[in-house]
Design a binder for these strands. Structure first.
Lengths: 397, 397
DNA sequence: TAAACTTAATAAAATATTTAATAAGTAGCA
DNA sequence: TGCTACTTATTAAATATTTTATTAAGTTTA
């Protein structure tokens, strides 16, 4: 199912200019000429047309770089909007962003349990419809929706094989297109996290970066050759089920020895509850809700609780071993630690680095940095918007 | 150090046409228009100019596809030549290829020990100079040399950090450029193997393919997004030293548990000698030369020797476990088994598939094929030429 | 404070590339 | 057979894009 772009430009270059300006915020004519690989007069011509059309505005002079100072330009923020949706196992956050990455109104959070919930998809569609209806006649300005979600997602076919089934042959994307009448782009949450780092985080301008999503599971989003890498069927970066553990614990996936059985917040929470009950010295008390437990462990660790630090260090080392494998295979320039685990990023980075020293050939690891993500909680929503803008001007699918 | 291209065309498109025709062999105007993404009239114009210039020849009509039959074209084979060099630990093979991938004369093999041999590089330069001198005045037609070699190779900087040092700050490439006065391209042998599969083997036209180089070590060449992937510093695909083994044997690299300590022909040869001496039933006799021993094991296995098959099956399973990790991370469409181990490819493929069944999430492995390379012994030389042609028309850095 | 050097923007000319219309040939089919 | 649909080839006209030269507006050097 195809939906026409609501914003029609008369040339392909203009779409590229919009995309570039969106991601760079502001840029001079020369910047644009260089980053799009087109000549300056050519860029200038299109840019001036876009100023006349109201899509681009002049933002004055930038400081000189040793010559005539450049005029800089940006997008007119309220000429287009993007519907941005971040879905996780329990909650879904919905926002509308303008072209300067500002939310039009406060992000809406709805409770939406994904697991074994046949109503989830219609509820989601309803919520999105309601948010869209708040736009009034500005609804025309919405150029698409980006959805970040867990599970096995194939972006190209628009299907999530794990959650939000449609009960028919229709793909998730086509279902939502039919309900909302705007272009829809779906992507796995770890991949969206990586895209966020690429477009506005530590991976900006870099070529080969691995973003580790430390949380209830262990995810991986891969930036390869300067772009998000999805693999042949869209499942690249399935780090959580690589066979790595020595303890051969049975994993939910049916296999043994998966990384996920040893190095996630879920496992840490479980171990902590057992440990405390069997008498480990700690400021922590066992909680029934494992999510809350993991939160408690992380804040205890940040306040110096030795047992919490020990548990997280153990997890970090095992993740580090997996990262060592990754470095051998991909030879990236940077590893970014993202996801909920960033809260204890400083604690994790030491054992990870130690694992790299132990398991990596120095020639490989010495050119690979390890950093903790600096993007906050809204990164997912911003990146879901990036997902839409990345494809702006291309006809779906 | 920069060397001017010996063949000057007046437009970039002509270089692209040469590259395309080289890799496709023959093509119609329409084929070229499609694969280069340019309009037909535009392609036709350049093509006819190149016919006038003598670089392209018309090869007659291809069978009709339901319409007017297309005229097909190919390169004039003897307008350019490529110097192609395949270096391994002990021997170096040198050939000169024309544009139809035919050797101008029989491939020369010289003995050239790489390890701890300061004379290796001057000897190599001398041998290459001698081969070039055989070209007489056709020397001008040589558009470059492609070198396939083991070790840590950085193609961009033209340095091999492991072998063939120059004893100065000069890079290997610059040294050879200075000696031979032609553009030089160097690349790691596993990567060249992958390139060979991409350009003329089972990976032709595919996007994401992993080529396993089974031999004295375990190498990996990665095809990602339809091109050879080298990683940030050129060392991507360092499969042999990923920490995977449970037996924690000390590896040459100083680490423990590397794949290389368990799953190479070298290990198989060593195990076989020990096994036979301790009384294993086999048609094999222990040989002092481990290279010869591994050859003997492979031919014994192909003739049904149970012990040889057992050893190779064990190796296959361990390589399979590493491939399982690879599939989880990269999600490729095809795994190709290449290198010397292809000789027993049929024997290896079963345990590898078994390891995949055991260690892969079905959703990932079910879309990934495993095949044995069909390229012969000269594949390395052909791919070294491909290395040159891939860059034909670009100015060397 | 002027000369030399940078970087940026504009205009004119030259080139590259595509679109559209048409011609030429073939396979499939009634 | 002859018609239709389809593929390929050629041409002219229109458009897109770059190159080159020139002007403008600053910084650095001495």
């Amino acid at each position: 199912m195809i939906v026409r772009q609501t914003i029609p430009f008369n040339t392909q270059l203009k779409y590229r200019l919009v995309r570039q300006l969106y991601f760079s915020g502001v840029a001079s004519c020369n910047d644009l000429s260089e980053s799009l690989g087109k000549s300056l007069p050519h860029i200038a011509k299109s840019l001036y047309e876009m100023i006349d059309e109201g899509f681009v505005i002049e933002k004055g002079y930038a400081p000189s770089n040793g010559g005539r100072p450049p005029l800089i330009y940006s997008l007119q923020p309220d000429k287009m909007y993007i519907l941005s949706v971040a879905i996780d196992q329990l909650y879904t956050r919905i926002g509308i962003l303008d072209l300067s990455n500002q939310f039009l109104f406060q992000v809406e959070t709805i409770e939406l349990r994904l697991l074994n919930n046949n109503d989830a998809l219609p509820l989601l569609a309803k919520a999105l419809t309601r948010v869209l209806s708040r736009m009034g006649k500005d609804r025309k300005k919405i150029i698409g929706a980006g959805l970040s979600m867990p599970g096995f997602v194939n972006t190209r076919s628009g299907i999530n094989f794990t959650y939000l089934h449609t009960n028919s042959k229709e793909s998730l994307r086509d279902y939502l297109v039919r309900q909302l009448h705007i272009p829809i782009y779906i992507e796995n949450d770890s991949n969206v996290l990586a895209l966020a780092e690429l477009k506005m985080g530590l991976a900006k301008g870099l070529q080969d970066v691995m973003v580790i999503d430390i949380g209830w599971g262990v995810g991986l989003g891969m930036i390869v050759n300067g772009g998000l890498f999805r693999g042949h069927t869209g499942y690249a970066g399935e780090l959580s089920h690589i066979p790595i553990s020595e303890s051969n614990t049975l994993c939910e996936c049916g296999k043994r020895g998966c990384l996920e059985t040893e190095a996630t917040l879920r496992v840490v929470a479980k171990k902590a509850i057992e440990g405390i009950r069997s008498g480990k010295v700690s400021s922590l008390r066992p909680l029934n809700n494992p999510e809350k437990m993991s939160e408690a462990i992380m804040s205890a660790a940040n306040q110096g609780d030795q047992y919490a630090i020990e548990l997280l260090t153990e997890m970090g080392f095992k993740i580090g071993k997996a990262i060592a494998i990754l470095i051998h295979i991909v030879n990236p320039e940077l590893i970014i630690l993202g996801g909920r685990g960033t809260e204890v990023g400083k604690i994790l980075i030491a054992p990870i680095q130690q694992a790299l020293n132990q398991y990596c050939i120095p020639r490989l690891s010495e050119h690979t940095g390890v950093k903790v993500s600096q993007l906050g909680h809204d990164a997912g929503l911003l990146a879901a918007a990036a997902l839409v803008m990345e494809k702006f001007g291309e006809t779906q699918p």
